[in-house]
Simulated scan of single mutants.
Amino acid sequence: MYLTQIQYNIIGRVINTIETGSPEGDYGAISIYADGPHDIRQITYGRAQTTEYGNLRKLVQMYAAAGGLYSAQLAGYAPYVGSKALTDDMAFRGLLRDAGRKDPVMRAVQDRFFAETYFDPAMRWADDNGFIKALSALVIYDSFIHSGGILWLLRHRFTESPPASGGREEVWIDEYVRARHDWLSNHARPVVRKSKYRTEGLMAQIEAGNWDLFTEPIRMNGTDVFSG
């Protein structure tokens, strides 16, 4: 997978828009959803939204070690993220919000965190399976951000093989996104059903043939990712 810097930046802006509504990314964005283990409420945080019971502890630990404005205060929370419910801890939420919006160190840490934790593994999967197009990179990265990877339960819903196994890249991506859209649209959790705007936006780019991601506009949930 080779991406130009422009394509890499566009992919980042698309994911930022999907997650926080802003192409530039809202590094202090906090949402609370009942989508944690056993449907418990949890914090989602940052420009690409990592979760309290997912990788938020890793992000807080990275920031605590980076010497930012709020590192000392957040360091005390780091051991408890994901093991002790902090959803209603307003002091913790305030520190996260302030760090994301006021401290350039947190913004730099988030950029590195989301690359190391989600983007790099997504591109390794793309390489291993023979994908080369920028829109494919976006689809795969979005699946890693939103679902933790390429879901096997969805791969069993269509027959096309990945390019590394002789399949056609555009067909595989189209069929995967459509299978994912159907899964999101009919999910048991209402909060997951609401996220089908992700796949709606991706299907629009596939239908437009925007495989290099250079064709404007690219809209996600009503927002043009080239604006701002």
Score class of each variant (00 low, 15 high):
2 Y>S: 14
4 T>M: 08
6 I>G: 03
7 Q>W: 03
9 N>K: 14
10 I>T: 15
11 I>Q: 02
12 G>Y: 01
14 V>M: 11
16 N>Y: 04
18 I>L: 11
20 T>R: 07
20 T>G: 02
21 G>H: 06
22 S>L: 12
23 P>T: 10
23 P>Q: 08
25 G>T: 12
28 G>T: 13
28 G>W: 06
32 I>D: 04
32 I>C: 04
33 Y>C: 06
33 Y>F: 12
34 A>V: 08
34 A>F: 00
34 A>E: 14
36 G>S: 08
36 G>Y: 06
39 D>R: 13
46 G>P: 07
48 A>D: 04
48 A>Q: 15
48 A>L: 11
49 Q>W: 06
49 Q>P: 08
57 R>F: 00
57 R>K: 15
58 K>Y: 06
59 L>M: 14
59 L>Q: 08
60 V>L: 05
63 Y>H: 09
63 Y>A: 07
65 A>M: 10
67 G>V: 09
68 G>W: 04
70 Y>R: 11
70 Y>H: 10
72 A>W: 04
72 A>T: 15
73 Q>G: 01
75 A>W: 07
76 G>C: 03
78 A>L: 03
81 V>N: 07
81 V>F: 00
82 G>E: 11
86 L>A: 05
86 L>F: 05
89 D>I: 12
91 A>C: 02
93 R>A: 09
94 G>M: 06
97 R>A: 13
98 D>Y: 03
98 D>F: 00
98 D>E: 13
98 D>R: 15
98 D>M: 14
99 A>G: 11
103 D>R: 13
104 P>K: 11
106 M>H: 12
110 Q>C: 09
110 Q>V: 10
114 F>V: 05
115 A>F: 11
116 E>Q: 14
117 T>K: 08
121 P>M: 10
122 A>Y: 07
122 A>F: 05
123 M>K: 08
125 W>E: 07
125 W>N: 10
125 W>K: 05
133 K>F: 01
134 A>K: 09
134 A>M: 09
135 L>A: 02
141 Y>W: 09
141 Y>R: 03
142 D>K: 02
143 S>Q: 14
144 F>Y: 13
145 I>A: 04
149 G>H: 03
155 R>W: 00
159 T>A: 03
159 T>P: 01
160 E>D: 00
160 E>W: 03
161 S>E: 07
161 S>M: 06
163 P>Y: 02
164 A>G: 12
164 A>R: 09
164 A>H: 06
165 S>E: 15
165 S>I: 03
166 G>V: 03
169 E>L: 04
171 V>C: 01
174 D>S: 13
174 D>L: 00
175 E>N: 02
176 Y>P: 02
177 V>W: 01
179 A>H: 03
179 A>L: 01
181 H>Q: 14
183 W>E: 04
185 S>T: 12
189 R>I: 14
194 K>I: 09
194 K>R: 15
195 S>E: 14
200 E>Q: 13
204 A>C: 08
204 A>Y: 00
208 A>V: 04
209 G>T: 12
209 G>W: 04
212 D>T: 15
214 F>D: 14
214 F>M: 14
215 T>V: 13
217 P>F: 05
220 M>H: 03
220 M>I: 15
221 N>H: 13
224 D>K: 08
224 D>S: 01
226 F>V: 07
227 S>L: 11
228 G>Q: 04
